[in-house]
Amino acid sequence: MDTERLAVRKTYKLFIAGAFPRSESGRSYEVRDAKGNFLANASRASRKDVRDAVAAARKAFGGWSGRTPYNRGQIHYRVAEMMEGRRGQFVDELRADGSGKAAAETEVNAAIDRWVWYAGWADKIATVTGSANPVAGPFFNFSTPEPTGVVGIVAPDSALLGLVSVVAPAVVTGNTCVVVAARPLAAITLAEVLATSDLPGGVVNILTGDRAELAPWLASHMDVNAIDLAGAPDELAASCAEAAAENLKRVLHPAAATDWTADPGTARLTAFLETKTVWHPVGI
């Protein structure tokens, strides 16, 4: 007797330090498709998961920021290659989230192309934003951009293109990050892509769950250096920005809603860069 093969389903977990743990809280939440059909039980991350993810991001920062820009660019391009291999899966997940077929395909294409675009910035942003400074004295003086550190990211609703558009610019320059994803399916599949792209564990950590629950912990965490509030509704963003003042985090919260399909410019790269100026005397 022929029976239809029973699919092997994927367990959607969190992505912390290069591994896929469940939430330490043991909590999960149902993800349903646009028609209400059950898709998965995604992990619902907790405050402690945020802290574990920040610790992993901090641990990864020295090594990742110390890589050569060329190497970071190579790894980012590898991420795009892996995304390309998973095109079908991403399209299916976006469709399950409610996108039409054409729209889902367009978004996946744009997301892969966006990642390639940012990959190329790895070894160019310092040329564009750095400078040799003509000071009035016998000194060699130059300024270079350096990554800010650990970036907390509240990802926007745009499940894949928006997610890619906030993660890639933060990490390509050498930051590490903790992302609170809006939609679990594409986010965790992206995590699988990252896990197989030679990206060191801990550089990107992805949490799924309730943004309003998790974002404030990220905003008030004293070992987070910057926060991107792209996906935080106004009131949540305001309270997060207030909490971020405690250790003077860099806060990125564009006033207007972002069109993720538009040319992104370099603003998201420079938002999480510090400028270091070095002086040395000239003489014999």
Binding site: V135, F139, K276, T277, W279, P281
Partner: peptide, 18 residues
């Protein structure tokens, strides 16, 4: 740190970001 002075210290200039 935002400014590193090597073999000098406390130098400032309008052309040098601080």
């Amino acid at each position: 740190a935002g400014v590193v002075w090597a073999n000098t210290f406390n130098k400032f200039d309008p052309a040098a970001p601080f």
